[in-house]
Structure formats: structure tokens, C-alpha cells
Simulated assay, not measured.
Amino acid sequence: GDPVVDPEPPVEEDDNLPGEGSNNLNFGEGENEYLPSSNPPFDDDDRPKKYYVNDVLVRVLSERVQYVDKDGKLITESLIDYTKKNILQQFAKLDDFLHTWTEAEKKQAIIDELQDDGVLLEAVREELGKSEIDDFDLICHIAYDKAPLSKKERAENVKKRHYLYKYSDLAQQVIETLLDKYANDGIKEIEDTKVLQLKEFAQIGSPMKIVKAFGGKEAYIKAVQELENEIYLA
């Protein structure tokens, strides 16, 4: 729906907008996460989360977001509507999003870019209580009304399609472990080659041995990208 304009924003005593005194939350350079100060003015559950979206401070409290628009008006709107609107500004149609997602070497890069543009997936996930679905399904669910699959369902679907059998025994173990890692922790975790240093992979072999099983580092990276596209098949 249309954003609701609240003429008298509730301003906390030490909860100022940029340029209006000290802000109670400190931002890391280029980070979207907020870092609570040592004396938070709210209980943890009640504290508004804050993000900078294109240099505009956006507060998230419960199901709503508040920000000051370019005309200086305080806008209050639903967190879901705000997030959906920002997804659709980048990807007007589902096909646009799917094409970009499939072509991307790193899926996380798309998520990071969207977050910079006000797609607040963590806040939405918390709001909906959807910890079992990943960012891809959350985006498709919010913006394009697609029924989401959980990470575990996606991982199981790959295994059911016998995708692993095209690899040697050692590489199969690696792919299966990557799938389990995705099911538990999401896509970001498996895109980084540092994942091979974790104990579940150490049981299979050293990073060098694992990479060699795929025919070298480039071939391993390509195998991970192929696995990701297999994960996100409809």
C-alpha cells in the first residue's frame, strides 16, 4: 500500500538522525550491520535495527520501517512492502532475477548489492520466522509470490537427482559435504574456498587434495558454481 506519513516522528532522546548529535549506534566502514553501544536505550527485543540505505538512515522496528524521504517527510511503511519494492526496482520480473542469479559467479554478491539498496533480508527473515529458507527463496517469496523451499529440501533434491554420481568418489564426498554445509548455513558459506579448511572437509582430505580431485582450483570453483545452479533448479 501507500506509505503512511507520520507528521510527528517519535524520536528517542539519544536516537538522533545523522547530523543531529551523537548516534547511539556505530557503523563499521561499509557495513550494514549495526553495532550496539555499551548503553543501549532499548531492551534487545525492542531496539530498532538501523541500516544505511543509499546514505539514508532506515530504522526497522517490529514489522515496520521508518526513514526520512528526499522531501524531508518521515515515511513509515511495512517492512515487507519496503523490501519488495526495493527488490522490484532492481529486478522488475522474476525472469530478470533468475537470469542474473544463474549467471552470477558469486550469489552472495547479488545479496550484498540488494542489501545496499534496501533489501533487508535478515530483518524480513526474522519477521517471518523463516530461518530455514535462504536468501534466494526469501526474495522469490516476497517479491514474486513463489512458494519457498527450505535449504534442506533444496539439498535433498540435488541428491535425489543423482547429480553427485558424475564425480569420482572423493569429489562426491566433497559435493555431498558442500550440500550439507549449504543446508545448514546457506550459500555464502560454500562460495568461499576457505570452507575446505573446516573440520568436516579435513576428514576427506587437505584442501590441496580436494581441489586436485576436481582437476585443479579453477575446476573446483566451476564445480561449486554448477552445484549452486543445481541447488536452485526449480
Score class of each variant (00 low, 15 high):
74 L>S: 12
26 N>L: 13
80 I>M: 12
68 V>N: 06
77 E>S: 11
48 P>F: 07
69 D>Q: 08
59 R>N: 11
75 I>T: 05
50 K>N: 05
49 K>L: 10
34 Y>V: 10
40 P>M: 05
18 P>W: 05
80 I>L: 14
72 G>F: 03
76 T>Q: 12
85 K>R: 15
84 K>W: 03
32 N>D: 13
55 D>L: 07
49 K>A: 13
66 Q>C: 01
38 S>M: 12
31 E>Y: 02
81 D>P: 00
18 P>E: 06
29 E>L: 13
60 V>R: 02
45 D>P: 00
42 F>L: 06
56 V>Q: 11
48 P>Y: 04
50 K>A: 11
54 N>W: 12
80 I>Y: 04
59 R>H: 04
86 N>H: 11
21 G>E: 09
68 V>F: 07
44 D>G: 05
46 D>S: 15
35 L>F: 09
29 E>T: 13
59 R>I: 01
23 N>S: 13
76 T>Y: 02
67 Y>W: 02
29 E>D: 12
84 K>C: 03
43 D>T: 12
50 K>I: 00
66 Q>D: 14
64 R>I: 10
28 G>I: 06
20 E>R: 13
45 D>G: 05
20 E>F: 12
80 I>N: 01
23 N>Q: 10
75 I>C: 04
73 K>S: 11
33 E>S: 13
34 Y>L: 05
42 F>H: 13
74 L>R: 15
49 K>W: 09
35 L>W: 03
22 S>E: 11
68 V>A: 00
60 V>E: 01
80 I>C: 03
57 L>F: 08
56 V>R: 15
31 E>R: 13
44 D>F: 09
82 Y>V: 04
36 P>G: 07
51 Y>Q: 02
23 N>L: 10
81 D>L: 11
62 S>D: 15
19 G>Y: 01
33 E>T: 14
60 V>K: 02
37 S>C: 08
67 Y>S: 02
85 K>G: 04
24 N>A: 04
25 L>R: 05
18 P>T: 09
72 G>Y: 07
